[in-house]
C-alpha cells in the first residue's frame, strides 16, 4: 500500500521530460564530437570494417575511429571489439 503511493509520486517526479533530457544530452554530445571530425572518417570506418569482416564477424558499432589533434601531431585511434568466441 505504502509502496504504491511512493511509486506514484516518484513516477511524477521522473516524468518523460527528464528522459527526453538524458537522451538529448547523449545524442547531442555524440553529434558534436562527429561534427569536428574530418569528412573522411565515416568512409575510413566503413573500409576498416570491410577488411576486418574478411576475418571475423563484426558490426559497425563494434568499431570506433576518432582523430585527436594536438599541437604538432594527430593521433588516429581505432578501437575494435571482437566477439569473445
Amino acid at each position: 500500500m505504502n509502496v504504491s503511493i511512493f511509486n506514484y509520486f516518484r513516477s511524477r517526479d521522473k516524468g518523460s521530460a527528464s528522459i527526453a533530457k538524458e537522451r538529448l544530452q547523449i545524442v547531442v554530445a555524440h553529434e558534436r564530437k562527429q561534427r569536428n571530425q574530418p569528412d573522411f572518417i565515416p568512409q575510413l570506418k566503413r573500409d576498416i570494417l570491410d577488411v576486418i569482416a574478411k576475418y571475423v564477424q563484426v558490426d559497425q558499432e563494434d568499431i570506433s575511429v576518432s582523430l585527436d589533434k594536438s599541437d604538432n601531431c594527430s593521433i588516429l585511434e581505432l578501437n575494435v571489439t571482437l566477439p569473445s568466441a
Partner: peptide, 16 residues
C-alpha cells in the same frame, strides 16, 4: 506541462 514533468524546461534546453 513543464511543471508536470511532461515538457523540457527552460533550464533543460539551456543546459543542452
Amino acid at each position: 506541462r513543464v511543471e508536470n514533468g511532461e515538457m523540457l524546461s527552460i533550464e533543460d534546453v539551456k543546459d543542452i
